[in-house]
Design a protein around this nucleic acid. Structure first.
Lengths: 281, 281
DNA sequence: GGCAATATGAAATAATAATTCCAATCCATA
DNA sequence: TATGGATTGGAATTATTATTTCATATTGCC
């Protein structure tokens, strides 16, 4: 007990991670369990925790001792303290954030700001998603041969995630990228039997708008995700969604757009699976 | 024990308030204490709580019995459960949505699921961001000549957003992409005066890990965003963040990672501005 | 492959904590 | 103010739980 014993959870966590390599098998097992189920450690008895983790109570005590505690009980105190702090400070933290962000102080405030912006955006979209539009968009995309994904600059991350997800769902798709300068050719392959997911927010990237125009003139239906009815994207789209992302420090959140994009993608995948099943039956 | 015993904290609270008038003095005393210090009830022992409340342990037990519990222990369980639920209410909501989606309950459920997964992730990260690590990461990145951004597959959208934001903030950066197959060369330019933001989640893309290894061997400091202490990325990183993203329908949310990434980026921008101002003054 | 050091399992033991019991006190009512 | 019932305090008892111990197994090393 003369060594410096971790007194708060974060230190404890760090200590465990640091020593992980050198811990014996069973001790490592309980170490992993502790980090995964901190609540169980906080409330359980040595016997119950040991059983859940698949070890003997004595191992649990040895684990505590290796960390410098004099027994399981003192180790448990750290886990309990963590729960206490977490719950008591939540409301206070939220109030403090607003004040802090106002006076532009501290990096933590920046982080909290982005979290708040994301939460706000999610909260907002969950209340105003138009379900009819959503169904229309899914139907439209589900019958497409190839789904083209079109987005530039700020929206590009969303496009790349859609492309990734479509790929994982084995849905043919094409991300319209500008690297090789072959976008025009890529677009020219699109036919009315395909479909496009286009994403653009103010200030609308000119390239994205132009490509959307061209592709819609080829008769390819477009599902658009954009930020207002005045968006140039909306006029080219068969179906469009309005997503209002909150911003912080000059950067808008992408969380609502991401959530909508993922939902569209997965719903399309599901619809296709159902259609395939029906065709067989 | 045949009466209906309060099984959740809210019911218990209501019951206590209702009967408050008719309770004997000492019992009322412990009742007031319980509502004022629910955490103490959750964590303490009968003796310690009784002492804090200024009563005898036996009174505490009588109090529990008057409420219909068969002893202090069962009363305490309600207080403990309350602490647990505080943390897991989002999780439960998410679990309910997952179950719904499983049984094929409409496309709206899919959308709600992704929104819930994102909210959960944000909620989670806001409580467990390590501020010291955060500051370390900012300091490390702020003094880098070039910031390299490394992420593959699912994490790639985050990387592309970071690159976009760094660009807007006029911070020199290089996204390590695989399109042209020149990654090795790109990486070889990195020096210890640069820094890397690397992002990878289980199952870790082998290319990402390998590139992180090489670049760290060149002495370039790495800031990693990953999902567990067992991540191979963690071992190469100077600073690393654990982000637990909730998943839905097989796709994990990116919202927490995005929020952290944006906060890092903007904070680095701010730190550089401050440093520049100081130099001039 | 054999030996020492280390780790683990299981049961015995010690410690701690909950509960019960009974005498003392309080309080309302006659 | 006397009396019965309810309430309370505090110690005794019982239970639960943590810890220790020791025999057995495993691991690393020569």
């Amino acid at each position: 007990m003369d060594e410096r014993v971790p007194r708060d959870f974060e230190t404890l966590r760090a200590t465990i991670l640091e020593r992980r390599q050198s811990l014996p098998k069973r001790i490592a097992q309980i170490a992993a369990y502790a980090l995964d189920n901190p609540d169980d450690i906080a409330f359980g008895t040595a016997a119950s925790i040991a059983a859940s983790a698949g070890v003997q109570p004595s191992t649990l005590i040895r684990f505590a001792q290796q960390l410098g505690f004099d027994g399981f009980t003192s180790l448990q105190l750290v886990f309990r303290e963590r729960l206490r702090e977490r719950n008591s400070s939540y409301d206070e933290r939220l109030a403090a954030l607003r004040a802090k962000a106002e006076e532009g102080a501290g990096h933590r405030a920046i982080f909290d700001g982005f979290v708040a912006a994301s939460s706000t955006s999610l909260n907002d979209i969950s209340g105003r998603l138009n379900e009819d539009h959503f169904e229309d968009a899914i139907a439209l995309l589900a019958k497409a041969e190839t789904i083209y994904v079109l987005a530039k600059r700020r929206s590009y991350p969303v496009a790349s995630y859609i492309a990734y997800a479509l790929g994982k769902l084995k849905i043919r798709n094409q991300l319209i990228e500008s690297a090789a300068g072959l976008n025009a050719e890529m677009i020219s392959f699109a036919s009315p039997r395909d479909a496009v997911i286009a994403i653009s927010f103010s200030p609308y990237a000119p390239a994205a708008i132009e490509e959307a125009r061209v592709i819609s003139e080829q008769g390819v239906p477009i599902v658009a995700i954009t930020d207002s009815s005045f968006s140039p994207l909306a006029q080219f789209a068969k179906v469009w969604f309005e997503v209002a992302e909150a911003d912080f420090a000059g950067f808008r959140s992408l969380s609502a757009t991401m959530a909508l994009a993922m939902a569209l993608t997965v719903a399309v995948g599901e619809k296709r699976r159902d259609a395939g099943r029906k065709r067989k039956a």
